[in-house]
Design a protein around this nucleic acid. Structure first.
Lengths: 347, 347
DNA sequence: TTGAAAGCGCTACCAG
DNA sequence: CTGGTAGCGCTTTCAA
């Protein structure tokens, strides 16, 4: 029958006890004699009573929910992220609110609105202005996911710069390439900012001239196709392109072969993220694997922990390791994937 | 400063009015003299007061939230779905709870748990048992998304069967193919069930022998690669495969070309959904476009509407049109996409 | 071990 | 137009 028809009071009356006792029983708190407990339990079962969430939340001053704020791009990356986060939250009987800010002008206000409905907030790096993050952090536990927050706000991330540098070094040193370009917009997200930084860093380390400005495009496949046109139109095309993520790299592959050129013979292409498709295309994509799901799961756990008061040494944040995944698109012989780990795990 | 430090009572005292008046002002309900209103508003602004969500929700007996339950597969499909749903909900200042049931044994219990925290629930077809859906529908507004619910539960969907039949007819009649196979598990989701039904239906309509049993695989790219191996191993391989979605079709493409065969010359391949990648691969994928985002958005709107009491003629549900997208992978000459619409829109 | 009662923060009804 | 007040459903002291 009806949802919240039954209240504690009803059950209390039915079981011949006080509401306090019913509460104690249904929460497992306090001392209740075995017999009373059994009686209450029976009344609860019999009538299918479930404590009303709002009543409980208001009295306990806990929402029993956490929020996840992300820009709302499509693709496998965000699905993984959401699932990793959710799977961890549900273990703590905490529900997950989501908010996509993408293309919404007043998103910061919406995030603040959401902050009033949850016990903690995970924000994807670059989604919300630093000022707003600080404002949020002052009112509830906040963790930045895949990015950096202001001082004092813990962040869970991978070392994108180191990974991008390792990847670039592979092209520069192992393959002897000299003319590389970066595809992606460093101002679009912290991930890309760092990858671009790592790309340049590798050039610097090898005392090579710094690369030209990045081809600023979005993170989706069509953006990669578009970038391919840009690249192939040059008088002196690059020998390789380091793409900000796998999806642009996949688009690049399409655009390049659409122009009758071959990868890696005519142009080397690399990606970032190691989405499923990366291993399946021809040639298979050399890329960087990052544990997106674990990243998100760890973020959720950290958030729940802080929200629960275990303020441990959480402030520091976490850096997850990445793996360089060498496949065919960089010019390496295609065979079993070869991988090497970059970055350490700081707890 | 603190989050909910301030209460109505404080503001009432500060503004020299009663809590009732503060409530009226902050909700825009009831009549308040311009002067009083101004005074209250000033107190609110000055102290940055925001009504506590839980207090309000408990008193109003509304959670101000809706839930979205989905299996939790990866890929572009779910990202689109989530975003479409969320974008609509946020317009009504309603927050979105998500729950992924994938691989979780006690998911039905979790769904019911969630039902106690929201004003309405959207459930992806095939995610929750029909019995549980009925149970849920008895306690709050429920809409089934991409599937069919029990009688009385509105559903928002596309006519998968008609679309799959149209696609299959194209292969059978226009291309004169005779040996087709279906790739996908009809028992996996309502979408696939219907597509499989449409596939057979087309054969029946043309008085052709019914196709053999489907190749039962999942909906991800690697599943398609695996299916390709199955298909190519046959003594008499099929002339074409109709895949349950684009991702398996993409995997099929990879698996086929990995075996040195060509699409569509040696094997025709079609997909379903028209994800971005479908247009970008070689050959571009012939598929069916379904308006996933609109589907989800409409679901949210319907749900909010029912939850708000506008029980209109919502019971019926909605069927969105699909579009057959003819590209190269079916053997048609590659060029500008050619599309034709299937299904009508029922309001 | 149990119950009475005081809220949690807000809305809404009913007088005035 | 405004204020007092009775809850919304539950938790949690404080006594008994």
């Amino acid at each position: 029958m009806g949802s919240g028809r039954l209240t504690v009071r009803e059950i209390a009356r039915l079981a011949g006890v006080s509401v306090a006792t019913v509460s104690r029983v249904s929460n497992g708190t306090g001392q209740v004699s075995e017999e009373t407990r059994r009686r209450v339990l029976r009344a609860i079962e019999e009538h299918g009573y479930r404590p009303h969430h709002l009543g409980r939340a208001l009295a306990a001053r806990r929402h029993g929910a956490v929020g996840l704020v992300f820009p709302g791009l499509s693709g496998p990356y965000f699905s993984e992220l959401i699932q990793g986060f959710e799977s961890e939250a549900v273990k703590s009987r905490t529900s997950v609110h989501i908010l996509c800010t993408h293309l919404r002008a007043d998103s910061d206000a919406e995030v603040i609105e959401m902050a009033h409905r949850v016990d903690g907030l995970a924000v994807l790096g670059g989604t919300v202005s630093p000022d707003t993050i600080e404002e949020l952090a002052a009112m509830l536990p906040v963790v930045v996911l895949a990015g950096d927050g202001p001082a004092g706000v813990p962040a869970v991330r991978v070392d994108n710069a180191a990974a991008a540098a390792a990847l670039t070094r592979h092209l520069l040193a192992d393959h002897g390439l000299r003319r590389l370009e970066f595809v992606g917009d460093p101002s679009g997200s912290p991930d890309v900012t760092e990858r671009w930084a790592g790309f340049r860093q590798a050039h610097r380390e090898l005392s090579l001239p710094l690369p030209r400005a990045p081809i600023r495009v979005g993170l989706q496949q069509p953006d990669g196709v578009y970038a391919a046109e840009q690249v192939l139109r040059r008088l002196i095309p690059p020998q390789g392109v380091v793409c900000a993520n796998d999806e642009t790299a996949l688009g690049m592959l399409v655009g390049v072969s659409g122009n009758g050129l071959r990868v890696p013979e005519d142009l080397v292409v690399t990606g970032f993220d190691d989405i499923t498709m990366a291993a399946l295309v021809t040639p298979p994509l050399t890329t960087v694997r990052q544990p997106v799901r674990e990243l998100a799961a760890r973020t959720a756990r950290l958030l729940l922990q802080v929200a629960a008061g275990d303020a441990g040494r959480a402030d520091s944040g976490l850096v997850f390791p990445t793996e360089l995944v060498i496949r065919g698109s960089c010019g390496c012989p295609t065979g079993t994937d070869s991988t090497s780990t970059t970055g350490r795990r700081r707890t």
